[in-house]
Design a protein around this nucleic acid. Structure first.
Lengths: 194, 194
DNA sequence: CCACTTGCTTAACATTTATCAACGCTATTT
DNA sequence: AAATAGCGTTGATAAATGTTAAGCAAGTGG
């Protein structure tokens, strides 16, 4: 169950985990199973855990005044789940996080995570790396959002995250792109007539 | 000249800089003056320096196939300048960085910066904090971009960065919001008739 | 096995936003 | 002072995208 998490820390950090460190991690993270359609967090919650996806998938989304949903990001194996802002600042989140498949999660309370970061160098290094990577990835998404048309954003998604198309319904892909399902359906139709 | 930079490190990190550390910083950063309309970087460049703005302002933008410009972000006193992705990955940038006012910058080559990060705890802590803050800020902008209309994005900008409106022409505000200057002009007109 | 939900598509129509063109005002340059 | 460029505005029109409604196929849960 923990193998993916160990691999993840070692690969991101470029460091090796000792047996002791692995035992420490195993005793600190707790397994949590959530079934499809269950919620990991809801609007207004304060995100008190780091959460690593071992198996399964999820979406994080907001709901606006008109009742429309907007998917900020997806999660799947080897990704972290939950609102980073709420976790870091301990403020109520604006987002819901709903499982899209039956999932196995490894979760750890914030205080324990902070102790782990101090204790295990590979984890500290991993956090640094993912903060940087996330800053880069989000900048790219902003660039796409303000400078590309709906069609170009879709093309870019196909290239960047082809797995999304296999795994998530088109309605949700549309929401992730910031367009309606109807518009996405028409775009795709235009590309492959018939 | 260095006072703003020292304050910045101390405030972001919550730590204090010793006299030795300050001297080290002074001897590592170099002053660079750029006049309005000069470029700090151009598309295709690899960003080899960290750059702190002491005085002045700038914009980072891309140019698409149709020749339209899209402003990814602004910079002003107490902000860092340059494409973070290009700096971190040492890849050619897609963005131009142009000064919007005569500016005083403090720059330091990447390798020197990395040595500073290892040597000065307050700088290491600052980098951690700004990576986190930038991840949070960019997530908020993504949320705005995919879930808000042009008018709502403008309202949100007015609240979040009122200084932008004082300092940058409307054409650029529009580009930052991902809309045309004409659309922005009409939005504003609708709000304050006459 | 049936009722129900979910996902995707299509059509007609409405709204938002972009495009193109023109004008006036300021500031800057010559 | 004249010429120029930058900035904001406005109008007419076009393009992109959203809205509402309907239908069908496939999957799901009782």
């Amino acid at each position: 169950m923990f193998e993916l998490l160990f691999q993840y820390f070692e690969q991101k950090s470029g460091l090796t985990l000792s047996t002791t460190e692995k035992e420490l991690i195993e005793s600190t993270f707790k397994l949590k199973r959530l079934r499809k359609k269950q919620y990991f967090q809801q609007e207004g919650d304060i995100c008190k855990h780091m959460c690593f996806i071992v198996r399964g998938a999820a979406r994080m989304y907001s709901v606006d005044d008109k009742g429309h949903e907007h998917i900020i990001r997806f999660g799947m194996e080897g990704w972290w789940l939950g609102d980073y802002e709420s976790y870091m600042l301990q403020t109520p989140t604006r987002f819901h996080v709903e499982m899209l498949e039956n999932s196995d999660l490894l979760i750890v309370p914030k205080e324990h995570m902070e102790r782990l970061i101090e204790t295990v160098p590979a984890i500290a290094a991993t956090i640094k790396v993912i903060d940087k990577q996330s800053a880069i990835a989000t900048q790219q998404r902003i660039h796409a959002a303000i400078s590309l048309s709906a069609e170009e954003r879709y093309d870019s998604l196909v290239k960047t995250y082809p797995a999304f198309l296999q795994r998530f319904p088109q309605t949700m892909i549309a929401s992730y792109l910031g367009i309606t399902p109807e518009t996405l359906s028409r775009l795709r139709n235009k590309k492959t007539p018939h």
